[in-house]
Protein backbone atom coordinates (compact mmCIF):
# COMPACT_ATOMS: atom_id res chain seq x y z
CA UNK A 1 0.00 0.00 0.00
CA UNK A 2 2.64 2.49 -1.09
CA UNK A 3 0.27 4.72 -3.03
CA UNK A 4 -2.60 5.85 -0.89
CA UNK A 5 -5.77 6.87 -2.70
CA UNK A 6 -8.67 9.00 -1.52
CA UNK A 7 -10.74 5.83 -1.53
CA UNK A 8 -8.29 4.18 0.90
CA UNK A 9 -8.60 7.11 3.29
CA UNK A 10 -12.39 7.07 3.00
CA UNK A 11 -12.43 3.33 3.71
CA UNK A 12 -10.19 3.71 6.79
CA UNK A 13 -12.26 6.65 7.98
CA UNK A 14 -15.37 4.54 7.73
CA UNK A 15 -13.72 1.68 9.69
CA UNK A 16 -12.69 4.27 12.28
CA UNK A 17 -16.13 5.91 12.55
CA UNK A 18 -14.60 9.21 11.46
CA UNK A 19 -15.58 11.65 8.77
CA UNK A 20 -13.33 13.89 6.68
CA UNK A 21 -14.01 16.59 4.14
CA UNK A 22 -12.18 16.58 0.81
CA UNK A 23 -9.45 18.91 2.02
CA UNK A 24 -8.69 16.73 5.06
CA UNK A 25 -8.70 13.60 2.89
CA UNK A 26 -6.01 15.15 0.71
CA UNK A 27 -3.96 16.10 3.76
CA UNK A 28 -4.27 12.65 5.34
CA UNK A 29 -3.41 10.99 2.04
CA UNK A 30 0.01 12.61 1.95
CA UNK A 31 0.68 11.96 5.61
CA UNK A 32 -0.40 8.36 5.35
CA UNK A 33 1.89 7.76 2.44
CA UNK A 34 4.90 8.90 4.42
CA UNK A 35 3.83 7.04 7.57
CA UNK A 36 3.24 3.81 5.66
CA UNK A 37 6.54 4.34 3.91
CA UNK A 38 8.26 3.86 7.21
CA UNK A 39 6.05 1.24 8.88
CA UNK A 40 6.30 -0.85 5.71
CA UNK A 41 9.70 -1.91 7.01
CA UNK A 42 7.92 -4.29 9.37
CA UNK A 43 5.69 -5.76 6.65
CA UNK A 44 8.74 -6.54 4.55
CA UNK A 45 10.80 -8.06 7.36
CA UNK A 46 11.28 -11.81 7.47
CA UNK A 47 10.94 -12.83 11.09
CA UNK A 48 11.06 -16.51 11.79
CA UNK A 49 11.08 -18.83 14.75
CA UNK A 50 8.76 -16.79 16.93
CA UNK A 51 5.42 -17.95 18.11
CA UNK A 52 3.26 -14.81 17.68
CA UNK A 53 0.71 -15.71 20.25
CA UNK A 54 3.28 -16.56 22.79
CA UNK A 55 2.43 -13.60 25.00
CA UNK A 56 4.94 -10.82 25.25
CA UNK A 57 3.43 -9.57 28.51
CA UNK A 58 3.41 -11.50 31.79
CA UNK A 59 0.66 -14.08 32.05
CA UNK A 60 -2.15 -12.74 34.17
CA UNK A 61 -3.19 -14.57 37.27
CA UNK A 62 -6.86 -15.21 37.60
CA UNK A 63 -8.83 -14.14 40.66
CA UNK A 64 -11.54 -16.10 42.42
CA UNK A 65 -14.84 -15.83 40.56
CA UNK A 66 -16.84 -14.23 43.33
CA UNK A 67 -19.84 -11.99 42.84
CA UNK A 68 -19.22 -8.50 44.18
CA UNK A 69 -21.11 -5.26 44.34
CA UNK A 70 -20.11 -2.96 41.47
CA UNK A 71 -20.54 0.79 41.15
CA UNK A 72 -24.19 1.94 41.18
CA UNK A 73 -25.89 2.75 37.89
CA UNK A 74 -26.31 6.45 38.79
CA UNK A 75 -22.56 6.78 39.24
CA UNK A 76 -21.76 4.99 35.99
CA UNK A 77 -24.22 7.17 34.10
CA UNK A 78 -22.90 10.44 35.51
CA UNK A 79 -20.80 11.19 32.44
CA UNK A 80 -23.44 10.14 29.91
CA UNK A 81 -24.29 12.99 27.53
CA UNK A 82 -27.90 11.81 27.55
CA UNK A 83 -29.66 9.35 29.84
CA UNK A 84 -33.19 8.23 30.58
CA UNK A 85 -34.54 6.06 33.39
CA UNK A 86 -31.16 4.58 34.27
CA UNK A 87 -30.11 3.88 30.67
CA UNK A 88 -27.93 5.55 28.06
CA UNK A 89 -30.21 7.34 25.70
CA UNK A 90 -29.44 7.06 21.96
CA UNK A 91 -31.29 7.79 18.71
CA UNK A 92 -33.61 5.05 17.47
CA UNK A 93 -31.55 2.08 16.22
CA UNK A 94 -34.22 -0.33 14.86
CA UNK A 95 -37.29 0.74 12.93
Amino acid sequence: MKTVTSEDIKHLASLSALDFDEEKIEEFKGEFESILGFVDQIANAKIEGVDTFNRSVPVAQLREDEAKESAPVEVLLKNAPKQRKGYFNVPKVVD
Binding site: V39, I42, A43, A45, I47, V50, D51, T52, N54, S56
Partner: peptide, 14 residues
Amino acid sequence: AYYKNAKRVQKLLK
Protein backbone atom coordinates in the same frame (compact mmCIF):
# COMPACT_ATOMS: atom_id res chain seq x y z
CA ALA B 1 2.14 -8.58 7.55
CA TYR B 2 1.88 -5.64 9.92
CA TYR B 3 0.38 -6.52 13.28
CA LYS B 4 1.53 -10.14 13.57
CA ASN B 5 5.04 -9.30 12.45
CA ALA B 6 5.24 -6.41 14.87
CA LYS B 7 4.12 -8.67 17.72
CA ARG B 8 6.87 -11.09 16.71
CA VAL B 9 9.44 -8.32 17.02
CA GLN B 10 8.02 -7.33 20.42
CA LYS B 11 8.41 -10.91 21.63
CA LEU B 12 11.93 -11.21 20.21
CA LEU B 13 13.03 -7.95 21.82
CA LYS B 14 11.89 -9.17 25.22
